[in-house]
Simulated scan of single mutants.
Amino acid sequence: MLKEYEYIIVGAGIAGCSTAYFLSKHSDSILLLDRNCDLAQGASGAAGAFLSPLLGKPNKFKDLVTKAIKFSTQFYLENTPKEITNCGVVRIPKNQEDEKKFQSYKPYMDFEYEQMEGGYYFDIGSQVNSYNICKVLAKDVEKLFKYEAKDIEKKDGFWIINNELKAKNLILTTGADISLIGEDYFNIRAVWGQKIDIYTSTQTTKNYHKECSLSHSTFIEEKNNYLTSIGATHHRIDEDLNICNHCLNSFKNESSYSKQRANEDCEKLISLANDIKKLDDVEVCDIKIGPRASSLDYFPMVGQLIDSKTTIDKYPHLVNGSHVKDEMLSKYDNLYVLNGVGGRGYVLSPFLAKQLVDNILDKNELEDEIKVHRMFKRWVKKSKITK
């Protein structure tokens, strides 16, 4: 007998945990599973977890991030007040060209700011404790770790995983690993990120962002030093997506993300942080890495998956550039995704998870910019598929 759930969520990073949180308000039949040994062991654990405004002239992506940071900041303050530090952030231009851009952005700032320390200080800037946030959000749902979802199939109205689990609704929040999806239009690229925690005798009272992000510090009595985080997104490289935060000691020398690479990145991050604020007596105490999932247009991908083969069979003229309404596209029944949050996972995920759950339960329409449909439409126009 297969164990049955109303909802199974595959992937226990911030996207999966946020989705679990909102679903848990409506159902007690939820399973959150992950191939790693705990929550937030991939990109979500390697995130600096900074909530920082996106600067720029008006565009749809900036609008999305602005709405998300307002929502998620308030969400964390209300639901996880012990895990968020609202200390503000100083955004510092990297060079003169960057400074000119900042000047041109001034009329379009979405948040109040003041000039400070060679940059622009935003009071809304925050940092959250990535692991503890995920732990709090997922506390009311059943969890299954060290479980690899290798195969999914639809049978008799249920989604079957590994012929062992069954779900009325399946939600994939798997980040850079999209092997379960099997749709060519669902194109996610892995951009590796690294976060390090350091002890230093230098105190920082705010977050900073220049070429990397440098966090506010916490005084650790037993070390008689301050604990500070440094993080950045980098390295568009091909690498084993199974690599997680516990893999550093098992890296092979020939791996492109070897221990040597990780150590070199530590040195680079410390150098970049010193360009923001001089850090004295630095001791690295933790390294975390993970592949951050980004779509080709940088927007996230949310909602029901499009069945490309069935859709093209029904509307072969799509490959010639013709259009059909979104509601006419064939979808996989009760199969949903939340993916492509990139380096802004802790900003975007609660905001998007709320919309996804409202879409699943109440059929609330998702915004066009985040729907999976857009990627299918672009892909099918470029495809050489013929009926």
Rank of each mutant, 00 (worst) to 15 (best):
E83C: 10
L272W: 13
D281N: 09
E264T: 15
D358I: 00
H323E: 15
K278E: 13
I360A: 06
C134T: 00
K384I: 14
H209P: 08
G231Q: 03
E6Q: 14
R189L: 08
V136I: 15
N207R: 04
T386M: 14
T204L: 05
W192V: 05
R261G: 04
M109D: 07
F122T: 05
T173F: 09
H26A: 14
A190M: 03
Y226A: 03
D140C: 05
G42W: 02
M301D: 00
L318M: 00
F102N: 03
S27Y: 00
F50N: 04
P316A: 08
I312C: 10
K268S: 12
I360P: 05
L39V: 09
N132V: 07
N79H: 12
V347W: 01
Y315R: 04
V10D: 08
V191T: 13
K331E: 02
L241C: 00
R91W: 07
S217P: 02
L170W: 03
A12W: 01
T66W: 11
L23F: 07
C212S: 09
V65Y: 07
I14L: 12
K67G: 08
S213N: 15
E112Q: 12
K57R: 12
G175M: 02
L329F: 01
T66I: 14
S383V: 02
N59I: 10
N95V: 00
N242E: 11
V89N: 06
Y336D: 04
S256Y: 06
K155S: 10
A68I: 04
L32F: 10
Y5L: 03
V90A: 04
E239Q: 14
V191A: 08
I152L: 06
I196A: 06
A68C: 11
F299M: 08
R91T: 07
E4V: 04
N187V: 06
E117K: 13
S24Y: 12
T200A: 04
S258Y: 10
Y346W: 02
H216A: 12
M328I: 10
V347Y: 02
L329A: 00
K377R: 15
V324W: 01
S104N: 07
A273Y: 00
K146A: 12
L279V: 08
Q115E: 15
A190Y: 05
R189F: 03
K166W: 09
N169K: 05
L172D: 01
D34S: 13
F376C: 09
V341I: 15
